[in-house]
Nucleic acid binder design. Structure first.
Lengths: 156, 156
DNA sequence: GTTTTAGTACTCGGATATGGATTGTCCGAGTCCAAGAGG
DNA sequence: CCTCTTGGACTCGGACAATCCATATCCGAGTACTAAAAC
């Protein structure tokens, strides 16, 4: 059970785009150079965020990606769901209803294992849904100042 | 981010073994038939539980698997950790410290994204650590009665 | 000087390979039981 | 009848393939700017 690394990339990109929201769209080339990431694959992940309505993409020579909503309205849960899919980590296959063990009538209550897993995952989701990109921007050091300064130095 | 199906198998097997703890070791063949699972691969997963000290395995013709501890002392977290590895779902690669964005001094505070992820995962783990195999046995219907009855009918 | 227009360089978007982890399969070492021979 | 021996069948354990998904890569469609040419 491991999360794709694209999640870390996406979150960092969202925070950075939050700081650079007045600079217009940021091209994938600059974002990749910003974090020293594989440009093509990062693009693919940001496309997923665009499809989910978290980012907007503008084509053309001055194009790039930008936040589609104010940072306060983007939760970490949104980003994770967009990048990892809406599938729950634990998928209950109801194996208890198969084989010899299931003989002798159906099961009435829902599977306790599934319920416990769901509870745990809900707690996880609740935590992530409580943190917005704006929260991440606030807690970060150094602040957006340096980000904007470094970005202004980027040429090409 | 998806959990291996072995987790569901392992948990159900632990619950069943809890009910059958007076019947002696249960062979992998019976367990596989019980849930209609691929025998060989289930064995491989239960071996992981054995290595983690959750199950005991006895070789020989009357051998099989059994719980190594009372069900009250085995948490769902134990089983998940044994089967999925101790690795956290979110692995922070500290990409903020690489590339152009990192120029101009080091970062003082730990990464806020990593901290938030860790908090969420902690909440998840806490939920799972609070549920034991005994809890699962208690909440299940039908109870261990039918399990023992069906198991007694198993021959070969 | 102003306007038009063709060119060009850069962007995102989706279709296409690759690698490593999860899943599945196989054979060998060990153990216990059962049956048979001997006392 | 009891004991010892020998054989066999069944168990777990770990090494060996196959399949699937995350990762990485590539080429095509579209846009805006540039610059030159015509007016």
């Amino acid at each position: 059970m491991q999360m794709g690394e694209g999640v870390e990339w996406g979150l960092h990109c969202c925070v950075t785009l939050g700081w650079l929201k007045d600079e217009g769209p940021v091209s994938i080339r600059k974002l990749a150079a910003w974090f020293d990431l594989p440009q093509e694959y990062l693009k693919k992940r940001l496309q997923a965020l665009t499809k989910a309505g978290i980012l907007t993409s503008t084509p053309g020579v001055r194009g790039g990606f930008a936040l589609a909503r104010p940072p306060e309205q983007i939760t970490m849960m949104d980003v994770v769901t967009a990048l990892e899919g809406p599938v729950e980590a634990f998928r209950c296959a109801e194996i208890r209803q198969r084989g010899v063990g299931a003989e002798g009538g159906q099961f009435r209550r829902p599977c306790g294992i599934s319920m416990a897993m769901r509870r745990a995952e809900l707690a996880w989701r609740r935590e992530l849904a409580g943190q917005t990109i704006a929260d991440l921007m606030e807690g970060a050091t150094p602040s957006g100042e340096r980000t904007r300064r470094n970005y202004a130095r980027m040429r090409g």
